[in-house]
Design a protein around this nucleic acid. Structure first.
Length: 114
DNA sequence: GGCGTGACTATGG
DNA sequence: ACCATAGCCACGC
């Protein structure tokens, strides 16, 4: 018996990622916190690396680390694919880092307060 | 159970 | 701003 329901966690993470607005981005830690697993930021990354975002229409490119760096870019087709997807939404990436990160950052918690 | 690894994060110098 | 360190935790070996 596992003390961690990976199926449930994966589902919640994917649902949250789908709610990230166009032109905005958030962090692994913020998603983990919103999902109710504040210490699972690393697991969020694992979920996204296995989600096949292109096929499943999941905006995984809108998830970066807490500093706004594109730490997962190598998991996209080419090493510049993630940056390209962000650029298409008006998010400027320079030296592997999102410009105006404080403005682009979107906290799922603020949207869940219904 | 130990140990290294990873799309992580907070903190302190 | 950069680097080191220490938490974090599932997973494979």
């Amino acid at each position: 018996m596992k003390n961690f329901d990976n199926t449930f966690f994966t589902y919640v993470v994917i649902e949250i990622v789908k709610t990230i607005p166009y032109g905005r981005a958030t962090s692994y830690g913020a998603i983990a916190k919103a999902a109710g697993f504040p210490n699972m930021s690393r697991m969020v990354g694992k979920v996204l690396s296995n989600c096949d975002s292109a096929t499943n229409n999941i905006p995984a490119h809108r998830v970066v680390n807490s500093k706004g760096e594109l730490s997962g870019r190598e998991s996209f087709g080419s090493s510049h694919e993630m940056e390209h997807l962000l650029a298409k939404e008006g998010i400027i990436v320079c030296y592997n880092k999102i410009k105006n990160w404080a403005k682009v950052f979107w906290d799922p918690i603020s949207e869940i307060q219904l």
